[in-house]
């Protein structure tokens, strides 16, 4: 891992990282019952930024990104997504959810619908896109993730890697401004991890704002603008990937990196 392949790194100059802040999290706290799972989280994400969140299991990294689209409710502090603050107002929540795409560890495709129907469902019902147009967009997205030929199959007939790529396409069909990836390769066989990561790299190259919770450190080096290390519900360290991997400052980060890069 030490010989970081400079050629493979994506060309950042092509992507215009703006100063516009799309996610603004300040002093955010969350408890599960009496367990303090997220503590004083402060985070600003700019449009076009690609962030990788890593950390040991139970550190709250998944919970953090699930708070961004309100799959989990935070109890203290502020989360503002694309100018809309997350409150108990259902209208705001639905609006933010339709702007923020999410891909899950276990794909969560709708098993009773075909691949194409999985992709057109939300545009048709949430965005009220006409069906034909939604199907066109869906085919375009399926092409982008390189499985247009599976459009009329059911999720149960696809491999894990294919299912995860459909899940990415399904999110993209909503034309989201932000994409959240929650350990999307953790449930995959090694030979399928690459096809999913390739899709994500392609998205990153197009300038999508992405927050990825992942253990794929190679991906982090190649794609991320910023790596965030979390432990015990806190952000312990964040830095550009170069400095993060080569020169970690905190002892906990050093320990974590030595454990996952150790062999």
């Amino acid at each position: 891992m030490s010989e970081l392949d400079e050629k493979k790194k994506i060309d950042r100059t092509k992507v215009n990282l703006t100063e516009e802040v799309v996610i603004h999290i300040s002093e955010m706290n969350k408890w599960f019952g009496s367990f303090h799972v997220l503590r004083d989280i402060n985070l600003e994400v700019r449009r076009g930024e690609r962030i990788v969140v890593c950390g040991p299991s139970g550190s709250g990294k998944s919970t953090l990104i699930r708070c961004i689209n309100r799959l989990e409710e935070h109890q203290k502090g502020k989360i503002i997504v694309d100018g809309t603050e997350l409150t108990t107002d259902l209208k705001n929540i639905d609006k933010i959810r339709s702007e923020v795409g999410m891909v899950f560890q276990h794909f969560n495709l709708f098993p009773h619908l075909t691949t194409l129907e999985n992709c057109t469902l939300a545009p048709v019902w949430v965005r009220e896109t006409p069906k034909l147009e939604a199907e066109e967009i869906a085919m375009e997205m399926l092409e982008k993730v390189k499985i247009p030929e599976q459009a009329h199959k059911f999720p149960g007939q696809l491999s894990g890697g294919q299912q995860q790529r459909v899940a990415i396409a399904r999110s993209l069909c909503m034309k989201p401004r932000i994409m959240l990836f929650d350990e999307v390769t953790s449930a995959l066989d090694p030979e399928m991890i690459k096809e999913v990561l390739d899709t994500m790299i392609q998205l990153a190259e197009e300038g999508m704002t992405m927050i990825c919770v992942t253990h794929e450190m190679g991906f982090a080096r190649q794609v991320a603008d910023r790596v965030i290390f979390m432990d015990d519900g806190q952000i312990v360290e964040q830095n550009e990937p170069e400095s993060f991997f080569n020169d970690p400052k905190s002892d906990r980060t050093k320990l974590f990196l030595s454990q996952i890069l150790g062999h």
Binding site: L71, R97, H106, N108, F110, V126
Partner: peptide
């Protein structure tokens, strides 16, 4: 599974839409 609820919520479907369609 809970994942089905989460997936339909994350796409912006309302409660009744996700009940009816998913």
């Amino acid at each position: 599974t809970i994942g089905q609820h989460e997936a339909s919520a994350s796409l912006g479907l309302t409660y009744w839409q996700s009940q009816r369609l998913i």
